[in-house]
């Protein structure tokens, strides 16, 4: 176990201890006089007994040590330095960034200024209707896994069983959002960051629900503004509706007409209705293509040529790779 060099608990002046099983001589616990000892390794050097815990002791937490000698037991309360953090994390963005969302909104992302703890957000997130009442069962009862790897972005999944028409939860309860009504998404400040501190403040934003978007993404509806050759001007694509921010970051790219990937940076704007790409090197006077993976979705889960509401029966995917759609463009002089 990886803990060399981490704080150890050391008892000195222990010459009187006769028991060679050091786990019976120096007992470290989380609660006073707990019967279960913290796991770790012991070393004896002269009159020193050293306890190296298997996992680093938590900064700021009190531990209790008992040194059992033949004629006495010495007790100590020990606190590992540190752990006096102050709340600093906030939610700086939630997407979609638009004020209005379709009533069949499938997911949102909450972006935090600092790394958050691994706990699930479900208990901290509430959807209130325009009378201030909480909408029950709006979100999937998922566990704590819906973070990005850096633990700075959390995915809020609306219960798709309620979003999608004609399946049982939708029949029972309808959609969580209803077109024409306003809602408030509330995130409690009790959500802990990676250092165990709460958010500096709670987060609220208003969502006005509009009619459901049930049509698939149609690439023919996208407006592509091609750049000029010899420049590093942006290639810009405008979408008629907001697309999912997480998938926009991953499912659109640029390559040459012979399939070479083009390096560059992307910017997403205008309520997730615009995607811009600035190449690392100037555009050549040639044909390129925009590559769109079939996993791309709008905020309601509609994919390219594949609406969320209508399911297709497709083959098993032996490569785990989605379909690639392409939109050709030319960088002209």
């Amino acid at each position: 176990m990886p803990n060399r060099g981490a704080p150890a608990i050391v008892a000195t002046g222990t010459r009187a201890a006769r028991d060679t099983n050091l786990a019976r001589v120096l007992i470290v616990t989380v609660q006073p006089d707990d019967s279960v000892a913290v796991a770790g390794r012991y070393h004896r050097r002269g009159d020193r007994i050293e306890f190296q815990p298997m996992f680093p002791l938590d900064p700021g937490r009190a531990y209790y040590a008992r040194l059992v000698l033949p004629d006495t037991t010495i007790r100590a309360r020990l606190v590992v330095p540190g752990g006096n953090g102050i709340a600093s994390a906030t939610i700086f963005r939630s997407t979609p960034t638009t004020d209005t969302v379709p009533e069949n909104l499938l997911r949102m992302y909450l972006e935090f200024s600092d790394m958050m703890s691994r706990e699930s957000g479900v208990a901290h997130i509430h959807l209130l209707d325009d009378t201030g009442r909480e909408v029950q069962h709006a979100f999937l009862p998922l566990d704590g896994d819906f973070w990005n790897p850096a633990h700075t972005r959390y995915t809020v999944f609306f219960d798709p069983g309620r979003v999608k028409r004609g399946i049982l939860p939708n029949d029972e309860m309808g959609r969580p959002l209803r077109a024409g009504r306003a809602y408030t998404l509330v995130v409690d400040s009790t959500w802990r960051d990676a250092h165990g501190q709460p958010l500096t403040r709670s987060f609220r934003r208003t969502l006005v629900a509009t009619p459901a978007v049930i049509a698939p993404i149609t690439l023919a509806d996208w407006k592509v503004t091609a750049p000029k050759a010899g420049t590093r001007d942006s290639l810009t694509v405008r979408f008629p509706r907001s697309l999912d921010r997480g998938l926009l970051d991953r499912a659109i790219g640029v390559e040459t007409s012979d399939g070479q990937s083009v390096a560059g940076t992307t910017v997403i704007g205008a309520g997730e209705r615009r995607w811009s790409f600035v190449p690392t090197d100037a555009w050549a006077a040639r044909d390129y293509r925009i590559v769109v993976l079939s996993i791309l979705e709008d905020v309601a889960g509609n994919q390219v040529d594949h609406p969320f509401e209508v399911d297709l029966f497709e083959k098993v995917d032996s490569t785990a790779q989605p379909t690639r759609y392409t939109i050709p463009f030319t960088a002209a002089r």
């Binding site: 990886p2 060399r4 704080p7 150890a8 608990i9 000195t12 120096l26 000698l69 020990l78 790897p149």
Partner: peptide, 22 residues
């Protein structure tokens, strides 16, 4: 020698596991 129990930080803390997904 006086008997006492202390927390001793010996050297640097163990390297933290990388958080970014490999």
């Amino acid at each position: 020698m006086r008997t006492r129990i202390t927390v001793v930080t010996a050297g640097i803390a163990a390297a933290l596991l990388t958080v970014a997904a490999s």
